[in-house]
Amino acid sequence: MAGVLVVLGALAAAIYLAVQSTTAEPSVDTRSYQKGYHAFGDAWLPAGDEDREVDEARCAELWGSFSSEELAGVAKADWVAGCADYVEGKESRFE
């Protein structure tokens, strides 16, 4: 009987962790995101009508135009997310 309770407890814990990992928002490196968000120097951009994938692809291309010194310690995925949010006219997640 005790073995069944241990197995049920472990199963419940595994289900809880699986639900938490799928519903939790992924962590974003604030510094990297903000560098991407301000990649255009806060210039005004008209809101685009492209989908998110296109905006992220363009931002990924823009990433390559910066020097490695400017991007030292910056997470590319978070930088691209910040850049794409700016291109889409969204408010920054951190300001």
Rank of each mutant, 00 (worst) to 15 (best):
Q34H: 04
G64S: 09
M1P: 06
V87G: 00
L5E: 10
V80R: 01
A72Q: 15
E70A: 11
E50R: 09
G82L: 01
S92A: 13
R31K: 10
L8H: 02
E25S: 12
L62T: 04
A2I: 11
E25Y: 11
E95C: 02
L71T: 07
A75K: 10
E70G: 04
A84M: 03
L11Q: 07
S32G: 05
D51F: 04
T22F: 11
D51E: 12
D78E: 08
E91N: 13
A57T: 06
E50I: 01
G64M: 03
Y16V: 15
D49S: 14
A77R: 08
S67P: 02
H38Q: 08
A14V: 06
G36Y: 02
F94Y: 15
A77L: 08
T22Y: 10
L71N: 03
R93A: 11
G41L: 07
A39Q: 06
Y86G: 00
D85R: 02
K90P: 01
L62P: 00
A24I: 06
Y37K: 11
V54P: 00
Y86N: 07
A24V: 09
A81G: 01
R52S: 13
Y37C: 05
Y33C: 05
V74K: 01
V74E: 01
V87N: 00
Q34K: 08
A81D: 08
K90Y: 06
A12Q: 06
D29H: 12
F94P: 07
C59G: 00
E69S: 15
G3L: 13
T23H: 14
K76G: 04
D78S: 06
G89H: 07
V28M: 08
